[in-house]
Design a binder for these strands. Structure first.
Length: 381
DNA sequence: TTTCACGATGGGACCATAAC
DNA sequence: GTTATGGTCCCATCGTGAAA
């Protein structure tokens, strides 16, 4: 069999009999290469840290509680990682972890860098101090990606998982802007909503390859753009939360012309749990401006609250201005089952069947069934 | 009083989509 | 390329009201 430094030996004894060989160059050369990673200080054999202060883009006073997160800014940790791939399994290693902490008017951005795989435990241990349990992690798709990968790495090294509560900004962002922006990747949202355009940015898919190139060559220039990419991600999280907070506080001023407008229905859903009447007003304004989605949302909200008359007023308006199918069906249901007016219901259903474009077959069949029933009722009356 | 038809609601399955 | 999440759609079940 092979020698004492082999995988066989490691599996049999659980010990590594001699240290891993450097991939290239002497130890002195490797350290020289490490030292040139822009602005980073060495805090362990394989772990490096960079700390920078920038004006906080969050623009919420330190003592105020954010409506969106229920915490003060000082409790937030904006969080993003760069790793060697996408899979959540044992093969995916985090090599750069960026954390943003609001401190007064500033955002303190700390980045922890892992210079080589053997130092992962040391790297993770250095990151541990960041995650105090009373904090709130803020990420973009971090609930699905960053947090599970990080938790897996902690587990692999038998370190207790310290991750605190988590607020993922992707779901609310998607709800608010998917209809107006389309793809809700962070880069797209930066451009369309935050008004930020990245210069010379590295594509996320390119990040693993950049790290592997660095490991092979020990040339830290391969990682300069990755480090910047990570820092911008953290900054954008802070900016995005600021926008979401403003929407939550002043939804009426959400439709700023400089950025993509938020979907009014989603905005109303954001506000409704705390201020139902404000949500109704938002949707009324949306309907008045011709927003059909807002109108339907308004009608169903009124209906769900038992405010049938208001719901019918909204559905009638939608049916009148656009001959809307969903609104028409709601009018027909109300006329048949509540107002006891089968003739009105029949006239609406007939109009829906005649409208252009024709309803699709499954809906058309339901409408024909409803029409036949209403015709029987009309004869009886 | 029983039966039937309808609308409302909840749960499960499937799909799209972010992250590197 | 992987994975989990949220959203959407469909189906089953339940409650209600009308008709026999």
């Amino acid at each position: 069999m092979d020698g004492a430094g082999s995988l066989y030996h490691f599996l049999k004894t659980g010990k590594r009999s001699r240290p891993l060989e450097p991939r290239s160059g002497s130890g002195r050369e490797r350290n020289a290469a490490k030292a040139t990673l822009q602005g980073f200080e060495q805090i362990g054999e394989f772990t490096f840290r960079r700390r920078r202060r920038v004006p906080s883009p969050l623009s919420v006073p330190a003592h105020e509680t954010l409506l969106f997160t229920g915490t003060t800014p000082g409790d937030l940790l904006f969080f993003d990682t760069e790793s060697t791939g996408l899979s959540g399994g044992a093969g995916n290693t985090i090599f750069l972890l960026g954390i943003g902490r609001p401190e007064g008017e500033e955002l303190v951005i700390e980045q922890y860098f892992l210079a080589d795989f053997p130092g992962e435990k040391e790297f993770l241990s250095a990151c541990l101090s960041l995650f105090s349990p009373n904090r709130l992690l803020v990420s973009y798709n971090g609930r699905t990606f960053d947090a599970p990968v990080l938790a897996a790495r902690f587990a692999l090294h038998r370190l207790s998982c310290p991750l605190p509560r988590h607020c993922d900004l992707l779901p609310p962002t998607r709800r608010l802007w998917k209809h107006t922006v389309g793809s809700c990747s962070l880069k797209n949202i930066e451009r369309a909503v935050l008004g930020v355009k990245r210069e010379n940015d590295v594509d996320g898919a390119e990040v693993p390859e950049r790290y592997f190139r660095y490991l092979r060559s020990r040339d830290p220039r391969h990682l300069d753009e990755v480090v910047t990419h990570n820092e911008i991600d953290v900054l954008s999280l802070s900016r995005l939360l600021g926008v979401l907070e403003r929407l939550r506080r002043e939804p009426e001023h959400a439709q700023a012309p400089a950025t993509a407008p938020a979907d009014v229905s989603a905005l109303a859903a954001l506000v409704a749990p705390h201020d139902a009447e404000r949500a109704f007003k938002l949707l009324e304004v949306g309907l008045a401006s011709g927003d059909i989605r807002a109108g339907l949302s308004l009608g169903f909200r009124y209906k769900q609250c038992g405010r049938q008359a208001e719901a019918q007023r909204v559905f009638e308006r939608l049916f009148e201005i656009r001959g809307d199918l969903t609104a028409g069906i709601e009018i027909a249901k109300y006329a048949e089952h509540r107002a006891r007016d089968p003739e009105r219901a029949l006239s609406v259903v007939t109009a829906l069947l005649d409208r252009r474009p024709r309803p699709e077959p499954p809906v058309r069949e339901l409408l024909l069934y409803r029409k036949a029933r209403l015709e029987r009722k009309c004869i009886r009356f």
